[in-house]
Design a protein around this nucleic acid. Structure first.
Lengths: 355, 355
DNA sequence: CTTGGCACTCTTCCTGCGCGAGTGCTAAAG
DNA sequence: CTTTAGCACTCGCGCAGGAAGAGTGCCAAG
């Protein structure tokens, strides 16, 4: 089936009809019939005329009928047209902005920031919140501190140039004293501040091959600890936070037990989701994936609204929501947009603050 | 309705019948009828005789009928009798032990340990895992370190005498240098090692009233930072981890959408759960709460199997599972038991290691 | 191009009915 | 006194059938 160019093939009236159907369907979840549409008062047309328009829209692939005697619901393509050409984003309320700002500003540890970001977007959107952070290997550090936890247990606190904090506890080969750790912290921070973890690892490994390292015992311990720290961070090549999965409980499209189950299980299979978000990472700006537009969304009639966050120079990850195709895109879009900007802003602020 | 003493009122045959009904019902989830029971071969009795026994057990409150023409299912009281007198705990498999030991041994940061504990018990039991940690105010510390994160942002790393690590990032009033923070860390660790956070706070506050503190600028900053750190930990007066809520998806008792929804919502309301676990905290040994035996479980026909963890001298919290009343207690009990012991063991090990 | 009318389709909801499972009771047998 | 077979009874479940309602497509007239 081929369709003609989207923009040329819809006269203004058809566009309005499409918009109204989608808006109403998003609101009610029910298929929209010609009578309902006529009654809304926005068209000076009889149901019969609207039926003609609707039939055209169906032929063009923007609408579909669940069954013969039902009204119409939008197709993926219908939603896509709506988002590209018909939707008017609703401005955020003051309260929404404040909530986002508060939650994002509350903590600095990266795990917690992302966790909170996911849960706040979930709460505000009443959808499933999702936050993705790819590998930390490209993570440029500002400082690296080592703290004595136990005899052979050291906590490594890495602060990124973007102010983000990563904590990892490592089991070490050697025993370290508090003094040694302070020295090592200073040395590594001074020597490697500004480098990415990947670079640090490579440089540390190269250092082990140099002669000096073999003789200076302190140097040896430093390098050993540094490598252990970096290696311990790197294996986690990405993190995915899925928050507020319970929000799908309210959605009528998942009202039966079977689809509830399928949906929950789908959200647990994180690999597919990671794939999608990873590919999105290369693009700037708000991204919306509808139903068949991605592997993950097509199976379950999901949509994803997501946006990259992080400084423009160094994008950090993706943040967004997952919900049924029938979601309030006009509200979701600015929400996700604002959260991603809030995250980015926070990161840049902390960056400035540190320098 | 009054019941006679539990032990005296059941002859051996009735006990066997009760056991068999509960075992079969736990296995199948269906009400058990006299025919089914007769066919299992463990009784040399006709269905009619079994019916008599079952009628007696129903009169005594151990069984009930969902409706007239159905078989019998156990009541709360029936499960209670089963657990107290009839159940034979199944030993853990090697694999189960290994899994628990691995997961528990993997990390040291308390948030992560508890998180992993909850998720491992959820996975092994196929129920909802729950881990509770009450206020940290009674948390005796081994060391407290401060690390520079940003200009007015300090990460505080507190290590408990039990080896547990707590990280908190605090926004400070003053600007600190790396040198200062090292000194402060040493001072506070030396001065307050072994004290609980509560004691530390009180002593710090008392110090602010002393003259010396007012004049010595370094001292002033130290106290200020210490108080901020302690206050920042204390507000979190408890943590509750609920892991693997998706496990209820498989349970036939929650197969319809409505009860699925109710159950998920119940699990999100954490206050009630906290109440229960808090009261359990005073008791040693494995605890099993069935249906009507607690506020939380009675509404949804849940059961809770939980046990205290932490060193015997200083109990730390509760760990356990939540599931439908119809659960394999014989397997759940040793699982929870082992996990709680593993957690406690780990905590004691780290305690030794540090001293 | 719009509109009213009409026949048609399809889902949904309700109802009634038969089936099967399981019970309790009774009377006879051990 | 206990056990057992027989029997009538109850109740939930699934299924077929029918009525109601919603919505469509098409056609002919305005």
């Amino acid at each position: 089936m081929t369709f003609r160019n989207e923009l040329s093939d819809l006269d203004p009236r058809a566009r309005e009809v499409l918009r109204e159907i989608i808006v109403q369907h998003i609101d009610s979840g029910e298929p929209i019939g010609s009578r309902t549409l006529a009654k809304c008062g926005r068209f000076q047309l009889s149901p019969a005329s609207l039926r003609n328009v609707m039939a055209d829209l169906e032929d063009l692939g923007y609408l579909q009928q669940p069954h013969t005697s039902a009204g119409r619901i939008p197709t993926d393509r219908g939603y896509r047209y709506f988002i590209n050409h018909l939707m008017q984003s609703r401005a955020l309320t003051m309260r929404e902005r404040e909530t986002i700002d508060e939650e994002v500003g509350m903590v600095s540890e990266i795990d917690q920031v992302l966790h909170l970001a996911g849960s706040v977007i979930s709460k505000l959107s009443d959808q499933v919140g999702v936050v993705f952070m790819p590998t930390l290997l490209q993570f440029a550090i500002r400082s690296m501190d080592f703290i004595l936890i136990g005899e052979k247990k050291i906590q490594c606190v890495i602060v990124g140039v973007n102010g983000v904090v990563v904590n990892r506890i490592i089991d070490t080969r050697f025993v370290f004293t508090r003094d040694e750790l302070e020295k090592i912290s200073r040395y590594i921070t001074a020597e490697f501040g500004g480098c990415t973890l990947d670079v640090i690892r490579r440089r540390l490994i190269r250092m082990t091959e140099q002669e000096r390292a073999l003789h200076d015992q302190m140097m040896q311990k430093t390098i050993s600890l540094g490598i252990e720290a970096v290696n311990d961070v790197a294996p986690v090549d990405h993190e995915l936070y899925v928050e507020g999965a319970a929000s799908i409980l309210n959605k009528p499209e998942f009202s039966d037990a079977a689809s509830l189950r399928r949906t929950f299980l789908a959200l647990q299979e994180k690999e597919k989701l990671v794939d999608i978000l990873e590919t999105c990472l290369s693009e700037d700006g708000l991204q919306i994936l509808i139903g068949s537009e991605s592997d993950f969304t097509q199976v379950h009639n999901f949509s994803i609204v997501a946006r990259r966050y992080g400084s423009t120079s160094a994008p950090l990850g993706m943040v967004g929501i997952i919900g049924p195709m029938r979601m309030e895109y006009a509200r979701m879009a600015p929400l996700v947009d604002y959260l991603s900007r809030a995250l980015s802003r926070k990161i840049e602020e902390e960056q400035e603050q540190g320098t």
